[in-house]
Simulated assay, not measured.
Amino acid sequence: VVADPRSLEDLSSLVKSSLSNIVGEEGEVDEAPLSSQGVNYVQARSMLPSPITLGFLLRAKQKCGELKTVNRLEALTLVLAYVTMGDLQRMTVTSAFLDLDPEDLSKTLKSLRSMGLVELGENVKLRDGGVKLLNELIPSLRLVSEEARVSPVKVLDESGGVEDFSPDKLASSLYKAGISYPLVSRIVPAISRMVKEEKILSKSYVVSMVCSMLQELEPAKASAARFHAYVYARQQIFVKGRG
C-alpha cells in the first residue's frame, strides 16, 4: 500500500482495532513499521493451495495405493507434507479440500512419526525414510507422455544384447541407487532428449552421461559413484526386456 503517512496511520489503527476485537483481550496484535520512504508493506502468505497443487493432491488422493510400509492415508499425508513444505497450518487447511478430518491428519502424522518417517515440531520434517517412500510414490502419480513411453533408440549392452531405451526403467534404476526425486525428474527428461535422435547407443555411453550429470548436480553426495556401482552390480537395469 502506498499512500500519505496520515492515511496509512489511520488505516493501520483501524485494522489493529478490528483485529483486536476478533482475538479478544488476551490476544496481541503487532503493527508493521511504516516506512518513511513512502513504501509500506506487510508480508503475508496464502494458506490456500494453488489450483495446480490442489489438482495434483486430488489426483494423488485417487491414485495413492498402499506401499509396503504405509497405508493409503499415510501415503497421502506424506505427499501433503511434501507439497506444503511441511507447514502444519497449510497442511491443515489443504486437508479440508481433500475431505480429510483434522483429527485423522493429526493421528496419521503421529503414526508416521512412530515409524521414523517424519519429525513433528512447529512444522513437519521429512526424515530419510519418508523421502525414500516419496521417491517411489510421486513418479507414479505424475502423467507420462506417450513420447516418453515410445522410443526407437536401442541400447547395446556389454554382452552384445540390444534392447529399447526406457526412460521409465532408467528412472527406476536411479531411485534404486538412492537418487532423490528432484534429481531424477531433471536427469531422465534430459537424457531422453539427448538420445532421441540416436539409433543405437552403448550402455556405457548412457551410464557415463548420467554419471556426468549427477556429478555436476550433486557432487557432495557421491551420487554418480553410487549410480555407477548400482548399474554394474546388476544386468539389464535400464532397458526393457522382451516379453
Rank of each mutant, 00 (worst) to 15 (best):
C64M: 14
K63L: 15
G55T: 03
A60Q: 04
V42H: 06
M47A: 14
L57G: 03
P51M: 00
R45A: 09
L57H: 03
L58E: 13
Q62L: 14
L48T: 12
Q43W: 12
R72E: 09
L73H: 06
L48H: 08
A44Y: 09
T69A: 13
P49W: 00
M47Y: 08
L57N: 04
Y41E: 11
T69N: 14
S46N: 10
L48G: 02
G65C: 13
C64G: 06
Q62D: 15
S50L: 02
S46F: 04
L57K: 02
T53G: 06
R59Q: 09
G65Y: 11
P49E: 00
A60C: 05
G65L: 14
C64K: 06
N71M: 05
P51S: 02
N40K: 06
Q43T: 15
N40I: 06
L58H: 06
V42M: 11
K68C: 12
N40H: 14
C64V: 15
Q62Y: 14
Q62S: 15
L58D: 05
V70E: 03
N71T: 03
A60S: 10
K61Q: 09
E66C: 07
F56Q: 00
R59F: 02
F56W: 03
M47Q: 10
P49L: 00
L58W: 04
F56I: 03
R45M: 04
K61D: 02
K61R: 14
L48M: 06
N71Y: 02
Q62M: 15
R59C: 05
L54I: 00
Y41C: 07
S50K: 04
R59K: 14
T53H: 01
K61C: 01
L48E: 15
I52V: 13
Y41P: 05
Q43H: 11
R72V: 08
G55F: 03
S46A: 10
C64T: 13
G65F: 11
M47L: 15
L57V: 04
